[in-house]
Amino acid sequence: MTRLERALRAHEGPVVVAWVVLIIVFTVGSSHFLTISNIDQVLVQSLFVVFVAIGMTFVLTVGGIDLSVGSVIGLGGAITGLLLIHGVPAWLAVLGGLAAGGFTGLANGLLITRLGLADFIVTLATLSVVQGIVEVMTANAPINYPPHALSTLTSGHIGSVSTAVVYAVLIVIVMTGVYRFTPFGRAVVAVGMNPRAARLAGIGVETTRVRAYVVSGVLAGLAGVFLASYLSTVQALQGSGYELTAIAAAVIGGTSLRGGRGSVWGAALGALLLSTLQNGLVLLGLNGYWFDLVTGGVIALAVGLGGGLQGIRWIGREKVARPYQDGSPA
């Protein structure tokens, strides 16, 4: 098996291919696409979904699903904004936003593991509960926290790159490390693959699941803080709908909905793909209404392509599929 073949058949293969194709199309279609300022803009606009999709990767890998993140984005932003209004220092306010997200994740995890309820139903319920809490908290009016309190997060620049992009890259690197190289990350994969085997191997299955939801909650809270900084205001519903986008990004990036398999950087690239798409379509002169249609097509294509690339046998080699000998992890 060649290096190229192995790379294409990695679970992140399709998203890389799809993204490169998009970049080529948009670069040919618009001279403005491949400029530093535009690339920077695409990166900044993608990072909210990047954060949420990374957290979603942990939850999906462990065999769950987290629909509550859309409201948790609003919660993280609202808590941070309200703390800032009450004169709390910015770093503490941001921590408050993250803690609120982590607490929601903890509640999700405990309800699912201790009461034995379905992940989908519990997080659908918390999606509704948290959204209601944020609506009550903000009285459905935008929170205008002191200007510039959070501006260092998304408006600062290092050279011609936004600080936000630097933060995002750091998060992707750190979380990739957590996923692949820490006992917790390995436990997440093991529990998702085979909970009973994981239990017999001495892994705390329930604890691992709860922790995965906490990771998802904290990262959704973080996305909320960054979104609050980017929009310089907080509204109750500003994260609405992000849950499905984040799941799409994670799955495009090679994460399995059945658990046991995932990729943090793949999820980040999946989010970047959607953001690139949105930006490129506007540059090509299509109005915003096209975005939904093309996004739907790209989601289906990227995932369908994934199935196709898995099945590719290079001509003249390995004509017969032999399990365990094709280099893919069994």
């Binding site: 499905l244 249609l293 289906a300």
Partner: peptide, 20 residues
């Protein structure tokens, strides 16, 4: 394509068709 993803893509695409 997994059920969740195929119908999620359809959800997005249909809304897009309607908007266009």
């Amino acid at each position: 394509i997994p059920d969740f993803i195929a119908t999620l893509a359809m959800l997005t695409a249909l809304r897009g068709v309607l908007l266009i």
